[in-house]
Simulated scan of single mutants.
Amino acid sequence: MAKAWPDNRIQELLDIELPIIQAPMAGSVLSKMAIAVSEAGGLGSLPCALLRIDQIRHEYDLIRQKTAKPVNLNFFCHQSPVIDPDRENRWRKRLKSYYTEFGIDPSGPVPTSSRAPFDADLCALVEELRPEVVSFHFGLPDQKLLARVKATGAKVLSSATTVEEAVWLEREGCDAIIAQGAEAGGHRGNFLSHDMATQVGTMALVPQVVDAVKIPAIAAGGIADARGIVAALVLGASAVQLGTAYLFCPEAEISPLYQQALRNGKDNNTAITNVFTGRPARGIVNRLVREAGPLSAETPEFPLAGGALMPLRAKAEPTGVADFTSLWSGQAASLGRELPAGELTRLLAEEMRNKMSAFHS
């Protein structure tokens, strides 16, 4: 079957049938999605950045009960933040009017927003679980940890938002590059460049990454149907990574508010914003993005900005208001289809085959 694709290096590298990878999407995906996509022949992914070690172990156990096919565990590689009281105070001051509006004490304590960066404890867990694929966001862990991951036999992927980042990742030992275009939903994977004004679109980024590195490239960002997949493959990608398209599946762990926002998604109602976590990410524009962002110099360092939003979310969401909720989405949400994840994966592959056949005839 692999001969049907223009470049089957990703299928061979990751031992998967289809060149389709489900994006990890921390907070929106658990074992059910990963199982369904892997069983359908793609690569299912379990995002680990928001999970404790015992939760990761539990979800991985569930995966292994239902599929023996390859799966990907995904981790963040950001630096643990240094708390800056001045920035914290500026952010609290910026949010004060919302606190007052919702009857919350602006001077009261706020929860801490945490996302664990990949460290020795998580590395030991990878050594214990031995997943077939480990992917990273925001670069790579230090060389000693990376060497331990590779020693398990896991194939290593990471995201690049520029050619410079792709070349760096190849040099540091990645097995494949996820070329993340600016259209992609969720957090930007940038780690060498921090200028959001110069972020590159998928169609421009993919062929330049393909030309710059010898390892396979995976296209990500704004791809939601067979047309986008075929376009990415023609540009030289060996596979695609889809995120927002999978959020329409019943396996997605998202709220009804989030589901409705995605159903209303348009090409021009997302923005790259840092107001939810302190780090740029593409999401659906809501009140907070409009009034405090999209990009604010007042947010605390990633991921601390989210803590002060928790009391606001707790008040607003039960009333059906998503004004302070991160609604991560790429620019092609309107192409989403509400199908089970396995069915969607197989359908995308079939539609892609048909388009490739027409393309070659």
Results as ranks from 00 to 15, higher is better:
residue 168 W to F: 14
residue 110 V to D: 10
residue 119 D to Y: 02
residue 132 E to N: 04
residue 165 E to R: 11
residue 161 T to L: 06
residue 111 P to N: 05
residue 100 T to W: 00
residue 138 F to Q: 01
residue 176 A to F: 10
residue 123 C to M: 06
residue 150 K to N: 12
residue 139 G to L: 03
residue 156 V to C: 03
residue 103 G to I: 05
residue 172 E to S: 15
residue 105 D to H: 01
residue 113 S to N: 15
residue 144 K to Q: 09
residue 146 L to N: 09
residue 135 S to P: 11
residue 102 F to K: 13
residue 144 K to T: 11
residue 117 P to E: 01
residue 168 W to P: 05
residue 99 Y to H: 01
residue 119 D to C: 03
residue 175 D to Q: 02
residue 127 E to M: 13
residue 174 C to F: 07
residue 170 E to K: 14
residue 177 I to D: 00
residue 114 S to P: 01
residue 129 L to Q: 10
residue 138 F to I: 00
residue 176 A to D: 04
residue 183 E to W: 14
residue 96 K to F: 08
residue 134 V to C: 08
residue 160 A to Y: 05
residue 164 E to H: 14
residue 97 S to A: 13
residue 117 P to N: 07
residue 129 L to V: 12
residue 104 I to W: 08
residue 107 S to I: 02
residue 101 E to S: 04
residue 152 T to P: 02
residue 162 T to F: 07
residue 125 L to F: 10
residue 132 E to Y: 01
residue 177 I to P: 10
residue 176 A to N: 07
residue 139 G to R: 10
residue 153 G to K: 00
residue 140 L to F: 04
residue 158 S to L: 13
residue 118 F to V: 07
residue 136 F to R: 11
residue 148 R to H: 01
residue 123 C to V: 12
residue 120 A to R: 14
residue 149 V to Y: 00
residue 184 A to L: 09
residue 157 L to C: 09
residue 171 R to A: 06
residue 165 E to D: 04
residue 157 L to W: 04
residue 151 A to V: 11
residue 181 G to W: 06
residue 163 V to P: 15
residue 120 A to F: 11
residue 182 A to H: 09
residue 170 E to T: 13
residue 159 S to P: 09
residue 146 L to R: 09
residue 102 F to A: 09
residue 103 G to P: 14
residue 161 T to R: 07
residue 98 Y to P: 11
residue 113 S to L: 13
residue 159 S to E: 00
residue 138 F to K: 03
residue 133 V to R: 00
residue 126 V to E: 10
residue 125 L to Q: 06
residue 169 L to S: 10
residue 170 E to C: 13
residue 120 A to N: 10
residue 148 R to S: 02
residue 130 R to Q: 15
residue 120 A to D: 13
residue 142 D to G: 10
residue 139 G to V: 10
residue 144 K to W: 01
residue 111 P to S: 08
residue 146 L to M: 06
residue 164 E to G: 04
residue 122 L to A: 04
